[in-house]
Simulated scan of single mutants.
Amino acid sequence: MTAVPGRGRTTGEQVTIADVARHAGVAASTVSYVLSGKRAISATTRERVLASVRVLGYHPNAGARALASRRANVIALVLPLRTGMQVPVVMQFATAVVTTARRHDHDVLLVTSDEGPAGLRRIAGSALVDGVLLMDVELEDSRVPLLRELSLPSVLIGHPTDSAGLSCVDLDFHRAGEVCVEHLAARGHRRVALLGAPAAVYARGTGFAHRTRAGVVAAAARAGVDAVALPCEEGPAAVRADLAALLDRHPDVSGLVVQNESAVGPVLAALPMLGRRVPQDVAVVAICPDQIAEQSGLSCVAVPAEEIGRQAVGLLMRRLDEQPVPEVTLLAPRLTVRASTAGGRR
């Protein structure tokens, strides 16, 4: 069987780099340089080669490409699929990572975080991946010492207490907590409460939960606002019970900060049942993905999962290329004001 000029090969035949070279009228090495970017090629020649690639439908062989570059062209993403973590939000991060990795010609191997340091050793020893992204980072994360020992490049989505020698990216959750309290204080609320992540998340020492709580407490102290913080469990019944207990102990709470995506809807549903109107009696602001808040008319500091995922992959690609990267990249929180905090305290 023969190829039809300008139309690619007959079904079942693999287009080779030699075919592309013949079609473009250049040497096979020139095609290789265009595709790898390892040598400067004139713009005219480059465009001619890329046009031939498109016409012939050439796809570089992944195995050959990996042998040539000594890379697997795969990165691992360690996902936190365990108690207290919201799977829809985790998958937003994962989708952003996968989409961005493909733009860098990498695939993504998904790994769960329950294996801890042993899982990282297994990944590093397998030679299946070029680098790793870790989510669900704890303040005293047991994986961190190992990351400093391994030659496997890594980026953390989140940051431990000691980030020396690491590369981390996250929302500035401490500042996010502060922004929420400052917003409520500016509207005259003098008693606020944080309904945080489930207790298991705090017990693990998960960074984002502890940093948000610290930000809420710090901003309240500066503003002369009384603040109380407590975990909030999952499920409508548990949320209502936690909220009822809070308002029973602190009936003068007039501002709520919610940092638990699964609790947002149940909180807004339970408040009227407990005799509190939103926002007349209780103003509510959340730290959650913006699409969740927008559906409910809820003021929020958005968790920018897509942006964090993009930046994490970008940082990892720079580490793979042995370029310098910052230890910690924190995204500034952005507050969107909606009906749930409209007006001021009366």
Score class of each variant (00 low, 15 high):
residue 4 V to W: 01
residue 93 F to A: 08
residue 192 V to L: 03
residue 66 A to L: 03
residue 123 I to Q: 07
residue 147 L to G: 13
residue 134 L to P: 03
residue 236 P to K: 14
residue 16 T to M: 02
residue 212 T to R: 14
residue 72 A to G: 10
residue 142 S to A: 15
residue 225 V to H: 02
residue 22 R to H: 07
residue 261 E to A: 13
residue 153 P to R: 12
residue 148 R to N: 13
residue 17 I to A: 11
residue 213 R to W: 10
residue 201 V to Q: 07
residue 118 A to H: 11
residue 22 R to I: 01
residue 243 L to H: 13
residue 17 I to E: 02
residue 35 L to R: 09
residue 240 R to N: 10
residue 166 L to R: 10
residue 25 G to R: 03
residue 38 K to L: 11
residue 250 H to W: 15
residue 1 M to R: 14
residue 34 V to M: 09
residue 86 Q to K: 00
residue 260 N to G: 04
residue 325 V to F: 00
residue 208 F to K: 03
residue 5 P to Y: 14
residue 308 I to L: 13
residue 331 L to A: 08
residue 120 L to E: 04
residue 218 A to I: 01
residue 120 L to H: 04
residue 109 L to Q: 04
residue 126 S to H: 05
residue 172 D to W: 07
residue 18 A to H: 15
residue 67 L to M: 12
residue 314 G to Q: 05
residue 343 G to L: 15
residue 74 V to H: 03
residue 232 C to E: 10
residue 179 V to L: 12
residue 156 L to S: 02
residue 310 R to T: 06
residue 20 V to C: 11
residue 193 A to W: 03
residue 56 L to E: 06
residue 85 M to G: 00
residue 201 V to A: 02
residue 186 A to H: 09
residue 140 E to A: 10
residue 267 V to S: 04
residue 131 G to F: 05
residue 67 L to T: 02
residue 314 G to H: 07
residue 136 D to W: 01
residue 165 G to L: 04
residue 169 V to H: 09
residue 289 P to S: 13
residue 286 A to P: 05
residue 71 R to C: 13
residue 195 L to C: 02
residue 280 Q to N: 07
residue 135 M to V: 08
residue 343 G to N: 12
residue 295 Q to E: 10
residue 281 D to V: 07
residue 278 V to M: 06
residue 302 A to P: 06
residue 206 T to Y: 14
residue 331 L to I: 03
residue 88 P to N: 05
residue 143 R to E: 11
residue 266 P to Y: 15
residue 323 Q to N: 01
residue 97 V to K: 03
residue 274 L to C: 03
residue 249 R to V: 09
residue 174 H to E: 05
residue 42 S to K: 05
residue 203 A to C: 09
residue 222 R to A: 15
residue 255 G to N: 12
residue 196 G to C: 01
residue 30 T to F: 00
residue 45 T to C: 08
residue 241 A to G: 11
residue 38 K to V: 08
residue 106 H to A: 08
residue 333 P to M: 07
residue 171 L to K: 08
residue 294 E to Y: 12
residue 217 V to K: 00
residue 340 S to G: 13
residue 76 A to M: 06
residue 311 Q to F: 06
residue 102 R to C: 00
residue 2 T to S: 15
residue 87 V to H: 07
residue 212 T to Y: 11
residue 115 E to P: 00
residue 83 T to Q: 11
residue 120 L to C: 05
residue 139 L to V: 08
residue 202 Y to G: 02
residue 203 A to Q: 14
residue 102 R to P: 03
residue 220 A to Q: 07
residue 344 G to S: 14
residue 316 L to H: 08
residue 230 L to W: 00
residue 315 L to I: 02
residue 218 A to Y: 01
residue 182 E to R: 00
residue 9 R to I: 05
residue 135 M to T: 13
residue 197 A to I: 01
residue 295 Q to W: 03
residue 38 K to I: 06
residue 66 A to V: 01
residue 236 P to S: 13
residue 155 V to W: 09
residue 345 R to G: 13
residue 112 T to K: 05
residue 104 H to N: 04
residue 40 A to F: 09
residue 184 L to G: 10
residue 297 G to N: 12
residue 118 A to F: 04
